[in-house]
Simulated scan of single mutants.
Amino acid sequence: MRKILIICMSLILFGCQSQENSSNEKAKDPASSTKKHKTLIINEDITRIEVSKSKGVNKIIFEDQESIQIFYDVISKAVREDGIVNMTDPDYYVMILYANNEQQNINVWVGESENKSTLMEADNTHTIYTVEEDFLSKLLEKNSQ
């Protein structure tokens, strides 16, 4: 009888400890707040987009509504991808400036030949998003014309 009581108490204590550890791990995950969003959050009140291959060097600036709208349409359709993120240096750095003077930084990896392009918010390196098309090259080509 005593052995059964000890076994039952051990199981109860072990079960409580596992549940407590699990909730602590969730609280420590910095990306847990973004996991509920399946798409990349971007505001509509964009006033300027700056794109560069190196952070802030030789940047290309988009302030026209057509380019901003193309950018917004594509980014708002970006889909969050599950899994562990381990990325190389991005192909492009994008800074989005809003009417309220806030900014959002996004790193972009351009997809090669029918592969999706990958996006990552610079302040959340635990989550990536994908878009179907190479929208950035289209914007850069449009700007060079």
Rank of each mutant, 00 (worst) to 15 (best):
E121D: 13
I70R: 11
I70V: 15
T47G: 11
I6E: 06
K36I: 08
L13M: 07
T127A: 07
F135T: 01
S54L: 15
S67I: 01
S18W: 05
N115F: 12
I75A: 09
S76P: 05
E114W: 10
A27W: 13
K116F: 07
S23T: 15
D29T: 04
V79W: 01
V108E: 00
I84A: 12
V74Q: 04
S23E: 15
H37P: 02
N21V: 11
N24V: 15
E20G: 10
E25I: 08
K138E: 09
I7E: 01
N115T: 08
M120I: 00
S54E: 15
R48S: 11
I12M: 03
Y98N: 06
L139W: 00
N143T: 08
A31W: 04
N24L: 15
N143K: 14
V108Q: 02
N101V: 09
L5Y: 08
V74T: 14
V79R: 06
E102I: 03
E81I: 11
V74F: 03
I68F: 01
Q145V: 10
I7P: 01
N86M: 08
S10A: 13
K142W: 08
L119K: 00
T118P: 00
D134A: 02
G56C: 05
S54C: 15
F71S: 03
V57K: 15
Q69L: 12
K28I: 06
I75G: 00
M1K: 13
K38M: 14
C16Q: 09
T125Q: 12
N43C: 12
F14M: 11
K28L: 14
I60G: 01
V108T: 03
E44I: 10
Q145R: 12
S76V: 06
N100Q: 05
I7D: 00
N100V: 05
A27N: 07
I12K: 02
S10F: 11
N100I: 08
V108N: 00
Q65R: 06
I41L: 09
